[in-house]
């Protein structure tokens, strides 16, 4: 379902020269998989994730989502693809502080062209699914960090994306809350949601269906290691 072909991403280094964030990464992720991407800080995990979601244009190589080659699309079409096919979850949640939980979750639906009523109905359903209905009128500052991440996951899910891309979703959480978030991701995966999660926590990564290791922008093992959750 997601095919990454020989993906390379090079940045200009501040002091001159180049930094190779990704160096020819190739990867295949099937529908319904839960893949953890692990590696040290600076190994290119997040760059790979953002590139898969159409946010980081690669220097070379391709990303294919379903039948669509993501970077063959122009910026407007890639934005449209992100609206419906991809859901992002972030380490720092990135909730809009002046919107309520319901409004935060409804935002991508509004962007996708839903009416306000349709968007809030969809957001309410997602919040209910995540056990957050009671908090729907609260603003992010009134929530615990675990709850904020649930809202972040809800926002990623509201348009029913093909793939949920989570960038260190437990990075700001205590171990118990992190476990709860990974439990939630596993539940969603159990319902058929394809998930790619970047993490540096090997313990949590072990709960995914497959681990992909990155080192200095390249895959560390080939073929990737399969683990049992």
């Amino acid at each position: 379902m997601i095919r990454v072909d020989n993906l390379t991403k090079t940045f200009a280094a501040p002091g001159g020269g180049e930094v190779h964030a990704l160096a020819g990464v190739s990867l295949w992720i099937d529908r319904g998989e839960f893949v953890a991407v692990v590696g040290r800080s600076g190994s290119g995990k997040s760059t790979l994730l953002f590139a898969m979601g159409g946010l980081a244009t690669p220097t070379a190589g391709h990303v294919q989502l379903g039948e669509t080659r993501v970077y063959d699309l122009d910026r407007e079409a890639r934005a449209a693809l992100r609206r419906t096919e991809v859901g992002f979850v972030f380490q720092t949640f990135n909730l809009v502080p002046y919107l309520t939980c319901l409004e935060n979750v409804a935002l991508p639906a509004l962007l996708a062209g839903s009416s306000r009523g349709e968007a809030t109905d969809a957001a309410a359903r997602v919040l209910e699914r995540l056990g957050m209905s009671a908090r729907s009128r609260h603003r992010p500052a009134q929530l615990s960090v675990g709850e904020r991440q649930r809202v972040g996951i809800g926002r990623a899910l509201v348009n029913g994306p093909r793939v949920l891309l989570a960038d260190e979703p437990t990075g700001n959480l205590d171990p118990a809350t992190a476990d709860q978030v990974v439990d939630l991701l596993r539940e969603l995966n159990g319902e058929g949601q394809t998930i790619v999660m970047v993490t540096h926590d090997l313990r949590l990564a072990a709960r995914a269906g497959r681990i992909v290791r990155l080192r200095s922008g390249a895959l560390d093992t080939d073929p990737p290691e399969r683990v049992t959750a």
Binding site: G53, L55, R75, E76, A79, A80, L81, R82, R83, T84, F88, F90, N94, V96, L107, P108, L111, A112, R155
Partner: peptide, 15 residues
């Protein structure tokens, strides 16, 4: 950050 989020959730540059 808010603008970056809007891009991530599908707002086009033109929008």
């Amino acid at each position: 950050r808010e603008l970056g989020l809007l891009v991530a959730v599908g707002a086009s540059p033109r929008a």
